[in-house]
Amino acid sequence: MKLSLSAVEWNAGSWKFRADETFTPGVHLVSGRVGSGKTTLALLSARLLQPDAGAVEYEDIRSRTLSFQYPEYHITGSTLHEEAESYGVNPSAACARAGLAGRWDEDPFRLSRGELKLFQLSCLFMRQWDLLILDEPFSALDCRGKLAVCRSIGENRSGIVLVSTHEQHILPKTDYLWEMRTGKLTFRGPLPEAITAWESAPGPVRMLREQGVIPANLTRDDILEAVCRMHE
């Protein structure tokens, strides 16, 4: 199973997106500042955007989906029941998974953005995807919600999971690290080796790195374990 972006270019005025990389099964974390091109990467990878040059190629990818940053865009049903059915998942199970047990007859627009985001992600995580692209999956979520999403991402690592985020504190267990910098996609490598080369590393990771301590991965437990090592 492989997702290849072969010499891909996409232009928006003077801004240019460039990528020439391959994604294999596992969790790929794509970090980068706001406006660096993470959403463009997500759209191109999902083949929702046609590149101006190059090609986006799928190998043995039979199912793929993308979760937009704003969950409202995905709404097509007038109740959570209809909404869950539109994803082909069991409505009561989806509600329960999102912490909305028994609220299946509610209007999706009456939920807070955080609740809606968690519900939409829960629906996606209830299915198996060869290619799962999550654009800013942690936005609008509280700490508990972010940890729940991290757990679910970990359960889906048999396929290619692309997580683009600028989240600084709660991150999923990651196999490969990527960076988007002014439109250019750069592979930093597998974890934990990639951490030393991570230019836009979050504050806690930078602090640990400065102390000469490299966490085994990016989960909250890994960071806490590394903090303990710092005092050894």
Binding site: A46, Y70, Y73, T76
Partner: peptide, 25 residues
């Protein structure tokens, strides 16, 4: 454009039935 993409991801084809949902959104 995003809504159209989201519909295609769900395997839904834009049509008359979806006009109320998209309009409301």
């Amino acid at each position: 454009a995003r809504i159209r993409s989201a519909l295609s991801l769900k395997g839904l084809q834009p049509g008359i039935r979806l006009i109320p949902a998209v309009g409301f959104l």
